[in-house]
Amino acid sequence: MSEPLLNVAHLRIEFNTRRGTLVAVDDISFDVMPGEVFGVVGESGAGKSLTGQAIIGLLEPPGRIAAGEIRLDGRRIDNLPYGQMRRLRGRQIGMIFQDPLTSLNPLYTVGRQLVETIQTHTSMNHEEARRRAVALLEDVGIPAADKRIDHYPHQFSGGMRQRVVIALALCANPRLVIADEPTTALDVSIQAQIILLLKQLCEQYDTAVILITHDMGVIAEISDRVAVMYAGRIVEIGGVREVVKNARHPYARGLMGAIPSLHRRVEKLNQIDGSMPRLTEIPSGCAFHPRCPQAFERCRRERPDLVRVGESQVACWLYGRTS
């Protein structure tokens, strides 16, 4: 296959606090191919949003990248100086946040925000940029875009605002868009519209997407591949059908079984007892071992690495090498 668009290798994100160093993301590696929708799923605190922030260089202090490399098109981007990173952000990597109300400036019309972004990244004059902004709003399905462009964010509904945010992220035609919980703040019937729109636009613009969400349904709907995160580590990466239907890691399998289905009713949902450990008390060895029904001695001592099992990669001592 072709070269990966994004390569994350051994990324480690730490927080220095008064009580010592907390490791929020611990040695994760993955590739994102051009044009692919790559899902990152996990429960709150798994480190999925931090991973997204690290890639786009928006990690907030005291969080910092303590080790590892992030490469876009083979070029290292995790250690770029501020100015260069700023040019790359938006131009090469777009970002869609969870809450569309906080990612738009309430004091400016959406048109002004779009034109400003377009002009930052291209050499268009104001007229051209405005025409492009109207075209973008039409692309994201906003009716009467030439009128709506002069409206303020509060004049749009939640779903429409998220469409504007998607338009903003796609302004400069980036190679990669990081969508962090893009549909969580929306109603269910609007969610489906936004997900489909995202998928369709990324095909149209040939943009890769890192889709960060806790909602497995959203992942199953549009992702090509998915990484499952637990306590700052990736426990399984694989094709989305493989992971949903045939998860190998006990946590991933438990997670899939815990999701109630629309299509069949079970007597009792599969439950994973306990909850995800706090960052201050991550267990030794495999972080999942205290909750794992299949844990054995080695899981408590040694941390498993991702190994290839079939088409997927799994970090679990039940699979692969025998030491």
Binding site: V188, G217, E221, K245, S261
Partner: peptide, 11 residues
């Protein structure tokens, strides 16, 4: 419509 549009893991 609700049942048709909601993302589900049934694939």
């Amino acid at each position: 419509l609700l049942l048709d549009t909601i993302p589900d893991i049934e694939m």
